[in-house]
């Protein structure tokens, strides 16, 4: 589904990502974990070209999206993204937030887009909030709207950049539940997260990163039971 080869990103002198080579298959749920500043978010943001990789290649299905010819906007239509701080459009209602991109980008008919948006909002449990503005919602509700908004474009992959890190503890579960449901529908998901339980229970694969490098790539059971690298052992000792 998505494949990276020698993916590298530097901001000026500092190298944030070093030669990341990995493959993520269709329907896989991948949890990207590691200490702060390890390059997890940058890796995720390279995948939908919010950051331009400095070198290396990314293929989405069979298309190389790091090639110069590629239209970034076209690529992003197929990749949904959920941010740590939601980034809902504050001047639009919940319904408008979800409908806007399908109508503007995919030229979907308004009636159809509204029907789809309402279905998605029902799926994330927010059908009663369609007319509300984002500032009337709790953090957990905002993030669920953000997930619905990303799903509105009917993407083939969903990227989650620390989706629960900005939430009050009691709201983490409602967002993770929506993500679990999504995983069960067979969506390909790449999740940068600090929620180790989520990684353990839901992920098919763990990517452990440190200092911009992909240190370890393994199934959750073996990774959490017997990490191979010392870095991963130290990290798990601290977070578990």
């Amino acid at each position: 589904m998505i494949k990276t080869m020698e993916l590298t990103k530097n901001f000026g002198e500092s190298i944030v990502l070093k030669n990341i080579t990995t493959t993520i298959n269709k329907g896989e749920v991948v949890a990207v974990i590691g200490p702060s500043g390890s390059g997890k978010s940058t890796f995720l943001r390279c995948l939908n070209l919010l950051e331009d990789p400095s070198s290396g290649h990314i293929w989405l299905k069979d298309e190389e999206i790091t090639s110069l010819k590629v239209n970034k906007l076209q690529v992003r239509k197929n990749i949904g993204m959920v941010f740590q701080h939601f980034h809902l459009f504050p001047h639009m209602t919940v319904l408008e937030n979800v409908m806007y991109a399908p109508v503007k980008v995919k030229h979907m008919k308004k009636e159809l887009a509204e029907k789809n948006a309402k279905e998605l909002l029902a799926r994330v449990g927010l059908i009663e909030k369609v007319e509300a503005y984002p500032n009337r919602l709790s953090g957990g509700q905002k993030q669920r709207v953000a997930i619905a908004r990303a799903l509105g474009m009917d993407p083939e992959i969903m990227l989650f950049d620390e989706p629960t890190s900005a939430l009050d503890p009691e709201m983490v579960k409602e967002v993770l539940d929506v993500m679990k449901d999504l995983a069960q529908t067979g969506m390909t998901m790449i999740v940068v997260t600090h929620e180790m339980n989520f990684a353990k229970e839901v992920a098919d694969k763990i990517i452990f990163m440190d200092e911009g490098k992909l240190m370890e790539e393994a199934e959750p059971q073996s990774f959490f039971k017997s990490p191979k690298t010392k870095r991963a052992k130290d990290f798990l000792a601290k977070v578990l």
Binding site: N48, L50, L73, R76, F83, H87, Y100, A101, V105
Partner: peptide
């Protein structure tokens, strides 16, 4: 305007 707004729009493929 919060830079995240641009990113959210870009991530949705909005021109």
């Amino acid at each position: 305007v919060d830079k995240g707004q641009v990113e959210a729009a870009e991530a949705l493929g909005i021109p």
